[in-house]
């Protein structure tokens, strides 16, 4: 029996992760707050720890955790940072 494929026929292309930084000291790291309650508590502490290691920390936030980050925000983070940490919390 021949069937018509109901899917998007887009078996996800295996993506390569970005190159690892190796050492984090002196790098630029973005912290993305997805706007869940208490995500800021986690990220504030993380920022302290990173700054103690001479890391330049840049802070970002999504307007709501219920929607994906906008393309603009994603490209801004990619342009301005070498690594990003995204915080969930509740």
């Amino acid at each position: 029996m021949e069937l018509l494929d109901p899917t998007a026929e887009s078996a996800p292309v295996a993506r390569q992760g970005a190159p690892r930084l190796g050492d984090i000291n002196g790098r630029i790291v973005g912290l993305l707050d997805i706007s869940k309650p208490r995500g800021d508590v986690f990220l504030d502490r993380l920022a302290e720890l990173l700054e103690a290691r001479d890391v330049t920390v840049r802070r970002y936030a999504k307007p709501t955790h219920a929607r994906p980050a906008s393309a603009d925000l994603r490209s801004q983070i990619a342009a301005e940072c070498e690594a990003v940490v995204e915080a969930l919390a509740d």
Partner: peptide, 17 residues
């Protein structure tokens, strides 16, 4: 029609496939 054709062998129950 443009969808990919997926052939199910005669020995296979299409519902299971």
């Amino acid at each position: 029609l443009r969808a990919r054709r997926v052939t199910v062998a005669p020995a296979i129950d299409p519902f299971e496939a």
